[in-house]
Amino acid sequence: MNAQTPLLKVEGVETYYGAIRALAGVDVEVHRGEIVCLIGANGAGKSTLMMTICGQPQARQGRILFDGEDITRVPTHLIARKRIAQSPEGRRIFPRMTVYENLQMGASLDNQTYFKEDVEKIFTLFPRLKERQAQRGGTLSGGEQQMLSIGRALMARPKLLLLDEPSLGLAPLIVKQIFEAIKLLNQQEGLTVFIVEQNAFAALKLSGRGYVMVNGKVSMEGPSKELLANPEVRAAYLEGGHH
C-alpha cells in the first residue's frame, strides 16, 4: 500500500438504531503513525462511530476503508482479524478470568508466537497488571481494568488501536498515566491510535489531529493545537474544567 493511503478512511457513514439516525454522514481519516481524537458531547455519536468501524452495528450508508480495503460489510470478528483492536467503552474485560487470561484472550488470533514477548511488553507498560496477573479481572480497580482493556487490545498486535473513552470514571492521575502510555506506544512503535474522548482537553493534548462531533456529524476538524485554541471549542468543551 502506498503511504499516502489513509490507514482508516470513513466516508459519508450513516448508522441507524432502528429508525433513529445516530450518524448522519461522517467523514474521518486516520493516517499511519497518527494519534487522532474525536471529541464531542454526550450522545453526539462518538461511540457509535467507534462501533460502526467494528461492524457492530453496520453502516447503512457510506464506506469504511481500512488500508484501502472496504470493511463496511465485514463481520466483526473478521474486522478484528485485520488487526483493528478496540478497547471498548466501559472496558468490557472478562471479569471472572484472571488478568493473565484476559491478555491471552487478546492474543487469540496469534499462534502464540509473540505471546511471551508481548505480555512482558504490556507488563512493562503497565506494571500494575504484572502485580495483579493472577487476580480476576472483576476485582481490579477501574483504572487497572482500563489498563487491562488496552493491554488486551494491544496483545493482538494491532495496526490500528481504537480507544473508546479510556478516561471514563477514572481519577485524573490514572488518566495521565494511561495517556502517557499511549503516547509512548505511538512514539516508540509508531502505533496508530484513534481515540474517542469526552475529556476534550486531555485528548487534544495527546493527539496530533482532532475531530469535533455534534449530533452525528463532524462539525470541525484540524490540528489539535488549533482546536485547543479555537474559541468555539473552548466555549463548548474546555471552559470550566482544566485537568
Binding site: 467494528c54 457492530q56 466483526t76 470478528h77 473478521l78 478484528a80 482479524r81 483492536a85 478496540q86 471498548p88 468490557r92 474485560i93 472478562f94 471479569p95 471472572r96 478470568m97 487470561e101 484472550m105 487478546g106 487469540s108 488470533l109 488486551r152 493482538a156
Partner: peptide, 16 residues
C-alpha cells in the same frame, strides 16, 4: 469462557 463473560468483547477480539 470468554463468551460467557462478554460476547461483544469476544467479537472485538476476533473470536467467531
Amino acid at each position: 469462557e470468554a463468551l460467557r463473560e462478554d460476547e461483544i468483547a469476544c467479537r472485538s477480539l476476533g473470536i467467531n
